[in-house]
């Protein structure tokens, strides 16, 4: 039973992690908007400030997330920020998306899924834990 509960809470942590990565990808948007504004203009301070605030929120959230997930697993998921950057670039800055970029993102997502999936012996261990708890 504990095994199943742990799995459910892991899903919640993973969902939060991905929300955090989406937010983190916005730092690239803020950075680009700050770069487009005149140096030291109100617009520059606004976007640069927004970037710092988002990074702060990300750092606070990241520290809580790595409490619950293995470091390598949490870090590998960061590859999804590549997709968010592509999406934000296309929507906000009308950047052209190349086929190689879409293929690159798909490869990265497959990679993250493979990285996070438990291997056969890990699944076996998980099953044993569940059975023992029952």
């Amino acid at each position: 039973m504990k095994g199943i509960i742990m799995k459910k809470s892991n899903c919640k942590v993973l969902a939060l992690l991905h929300l955090l990565f989406m937010l983190f990808s916005l730092t690239g948007v803020c950075s680009k908007l700050a770069g487009k504004s005149d140096f030291l203009s109100p617009g520059f301070f606004f976007w640069y400030g927004a970037m710092i605030v988002i990074m702060g929120i990300y750092a606070v959230g990241w520290q809580q997330i790595i409490k619950h997930l293995p470091l390598s697993t949490a870090f590998a998921n960061k590859a999804v920020t590549l997709i968010w950057s592509l999406i934000f670039g296309a929507i906000i800055f009308r950047e052209h998306i190349k086929w190689t970029q879409i293929a690159g993102c798909m490869l990265a997502v497959i990679g993250v899924i493979l990285y996070v999936l438990p291997q056969r012996n890990e699944k076996q261990e998980e099953k044993e834990v569940t059975e023992n708890d029952n």
Binding site: P70, L71, S72, T73, A76, A79, L82, L86, T100, Q101, A103, G104, C105, M106, L107, A108, V109, I110, G111, V112, I113, L114, Y115, V116, L117, P118, Q119, E122
Partner: peptide, 25 residues
């Protein structure tokens, strides 16, 4: 942290790295 490096992880890592290279070219 004794986090196991499994075959899945190595293949996944390969895919992530190839994806980054494709995005960069």
């Amino acid at each position: 942290f004794s986090e196991k490096i499994t075959v899945n992880k190595l293949i996944g890592l390969g895919f992530i790295l190839s994806g980054i290279v494709l995005l960069a070219i």
